[in-house]
Amino acid sequence: MMRRREARLGWLFISPAFFHLVVFALFPMGYALYLSFFKWHLIKDVRQYVGSSNYAFCLTDETFLHSLWNSAKYSLLSVPFGMALGLAVAILVNQKLRGISIFRTIYYIPAISSGVAIAMLWIYVYLPETGLLNSMALGLLGEHGRLTPMVASMLGKPDWHLASIDFLNSTQWAMIALAFMSGWGGLGPKMVLFLAGLLGIPQSLYEAAELDGAGRWRSFVSVTLPMLAPTTFFVLVTSTIGALQVFTPVYMMTKGGPDESTNVVGYQIYQEAWVTFHTGLAAAESFVLLALIAVVSLAQFRMMKSTLVGYATT
């Protein structure tokens, strides 16, 4: 009797959130799957059942495949960089120093910033000639830079100097520029997560390592890194999921260009869904992205498991 009352109450407590979940997440997921089998124009609202041909189309469509490749590239550039930076900064702010919490707060600020403001800001940072990055670098190493003669003579090339780079308009640099910006912007949460991980490592392990004659580096490799493995895994999975869906910076800063070099899959789906109104195709493409995210997360999970087993046996 008691149990049944509790069950009814339990459902009562979760019912608003569960209803919302059904209406705004579960039903839409099913409906998106249904949509992906139709040729459907969002505005004209004509729909025609086409079977799996949306999938067949996008999996052979060069633009879409290229956008998947671009997303992979973006993730491979931004995730390791962001994680390494996050871990390094976490170790730095884990030092017992006066005023350290002020630095922790400062380092978090880019992460709470508006994506639009950040994009406007970094367009300026990356501008050729007058942008923050170029003007600083050129002031030191440009044609009339202060350090140019010194470096040129060291290189043995008297005419050497840096040239201005138009980062966001260069097929070679645009993606790197976006990934670098994301490392800057995403530092805060990664730092906090790694910091939490570091604080959770029992001090006794370091003492034992010291007794065994381990130096700073050795205890970092043999104690810190393995003990951080669960945190690292969590950060890896969440940042990869985020990186595979990146949209705002691409929309604001490069529009997928130049020459489609930053046309990531999130932007590509946006184009199909809201610009060319290939609604059914966009739904199919979003499921391909979903599958990709699931596969990558699962692979990372497997990798994590085998790493942990490796540590347990040695």
Binding site: F24, A25, P28, M29, L42, Q245, A273, A283
Partner: peptide, 18 residues
């Protein structure tokens, strides 16, 4: 688990249906 799963996976596919 449905809540957790939707947190991880619903993002990319729900925009059009919603």
């Amino acid at each position: 688990a449905l809540f957790l799963g939707s947190m991880m996976f619903a993002g990319p596919v729900t925009q059009i249906p919603v």
